Computed example of a mutant assay.
Amino acid sequence: MCGRFVITEAADEMARLFEAIPANDLPQVPNHNVCPTNQILVVLGGEGRRLTSMRWGFIPHWYKSPGDGPLLINARAETIAEKPAFRSAARERRCIVPATGFYEWTKDADNKRLPWYIRPSGGGPIAFAAIWQEWRHGDDLMNTCAIVTTSANAAMAKIHHRMPVCLSPEDWPLWLGEAGKGAAMLMRPAPESYLDFWRVDPRVNSNRASGCDLIEPISA
């Protein structure tokens, strides 16, 4: 799964990378502890790509309030096409969530949560596959999204059995619906060599923690 992530690249850098027009109300970066329900950067495809802001936490159209059901921050690749909450978005509303890295947790012998930071081995940003939904109830209107996850590759499985779907640049047009059909084949684990990971301070266990030191390695 992906329950927390990091974004350090500036919005204008992400706009250039994805060749997208940036909106005016983008969330502040860097953010070394992006949490569910935060506003996050999202790339939308089409004739002119857009870099916009959405709530991380997909809200199905039948929810009467954002808290009317489970918090849907991830969508499983294996079932995304069948789940009532996700199937329409998987066909029609795919997007990309830019990130620098993400966190995952293991547990020690005392059942304490041990955080790990995971990032591309060559550095640079990650493009998470995601889906989005416009939620409206009365006068309330909100664009929301979920990150797509798949089974972990062998390297990542040492930490967790799930991982985000990470898209390479050549995959972006297909995922965004700009290059025809076949996006389902992109929902696969990244190559084992794609990611590096290391232990970080348990301070990140708190969603209130902040600062660039959150991703600094510590002794395991």
Rank of each mutant, 00 (worst) to 15 (best):
86 F>D: 08
82 E>Y: 07
113 R>W: 12
43 V>W: 03
30 P>W: 09
56 W>V: 10
135 W>N: 03
60 P>K: 00
117 Y>L: 00
7 I>A: 11
54 M>T: 06
195 L>A: 10
147 I>G: 01
213 D>V: 04
56 W>S: 07
90 A>P: 01
155 A>H: 13
12 D>T: 12
13 E>N: 03
143 N>H: 14
49 R>C: 09
27 P>R: 07
92 E>R: 15
19 E>V: 04
116 W>Y: 13
132 W>S: 10
108 D>G: 01
174 L>T: 04
146 A>Y: 11
73 I>E: 05
103 Y>K: 11
13 E>F: 02
53 S>L: 05
76 R>W: 13
67 G>L: 10
31 N>S: 13
192 E>C: 05
202 P>F: 06
48 G>N: 14
180 G>K: 09
23 A>K: 07
180 G>C: 11
74 N>D: 10
210 S>T: 12
193 S>K: 00
129 A>Q: 05
28 Q>F: 05
110 D>R: 13
81 A>G: 06
148 V>F: 11
151 S>C: 10
118 I>W: 04
111 N>S: 13
219 S>Q: 13
82 E>S: 15
56 W>Y: 02
20 A>N: 02
114 L>Y: 03
135 W>G: 08
204 V>Y: 01
184 A>E: 14
31 N>F: 04
91 R>F: 05
211 G>F: 04
137 H>L: 00
51 L>F: 12
121 S>N: 08
161 H>W: 11
10 A>I: 04
12 D>C: 04
169 P>Y: 03
16 R>M: 07
101 G>M: 04
175 W>C: 05
95 C>I: 00
42 V>A: 15
76 R>Y: 13
33 N>A: 02
77 A>T: 06
195 L>Q: 00
66 P>M: 09
123 G>R: 04
104 E>G: 02
190 A>D: 01
116 W>H: 15
114 L>A: 08
198 W>H: 15
173 P>D: 09
216 E>K: 10
174 L>E: 06
23 A>N: 11
95 C>T: 02
62 W>Q: 04
69 G>Q: 09
92 E>D: 12
181 K>L: 13
153 N>L: 08
196 D>N: 14
54 M>N: 02
